[in-house]
């Protein structure tokens, strides 16, 4: 694989029911490419949490998955409200989600911590009122 493979998805922010569709599609594509099962699992869980976050908090956004020989990058970008306190948001159990989101099984304050747990590197760029971009890297070995 000389050139990186890039998958691009638009994440629809209007419908919680369809949240996660991009992660399911990525998982299927990466299986077809024959990537290691553990890499696929880590990547798809991290991306799924990110996708859910984009739908809950930011009215959707874009997801790009870049596959190289040595690693996979996930870039999630939204034009949402931004994260007020990143350190707080990274704490397990901290959530600003509504009761409605809780009733749907999310908003337990595990989204960002899980994304960090399953990626080897993660960075968050965020600006209030402008949006958030999260980059995650998972190495092949």
């Amino acid at each position: 694989m000389a050139e990186p493979l890039v998958f691009h998805y638009e994440v629809d922010g209007s419908d919680f029911t369809s949240a996660g569709t991009a992660s399911v599609a990525v998982k299927k594509s990466l299986r077809q490419l024959g990537l290691p099962a553990e890499v696929i699992r880590k990547l798809s869980i991290a991306m799924y949490e990110g996708e859910i976050n984009m739908v809950i908090h930011a009215n959707g956004g874009t997801a790009d998955v870049i596959v190289t020989e040595d690693y996979v990058d996930i870039v999630l970008a939204d034009s949402g409200p931004g994260i007020e306190d990143v350190d707080k948001a990274m704490q397990e159990g901290f959530s600003t989600a509504t009761a409605e989101i809780h009733s749907l099984g999310f908003g337990a304050g595990m989204g960002l911590p899980n994304m960090k747990r399953y990626s080897d590197e993660m960075s968050i760029e965020t600006e209030l009122g402008v949006g958030t971009t999260i980059r995650m890297r998972i190495y092949m070995t």
């Binding site: 099984g105 999310f106 595990m110």
Partner: peptide
Amino acid sequence: DMMSDVLAYVKDQAVLLTGLVNPQV
């Protein structure tokens, strides 16, 4: 019933028991 808690701990070939009913399960 909290899907993010499910996602926090990987188990292999597991069964998920839940009272939550939506496509995210």
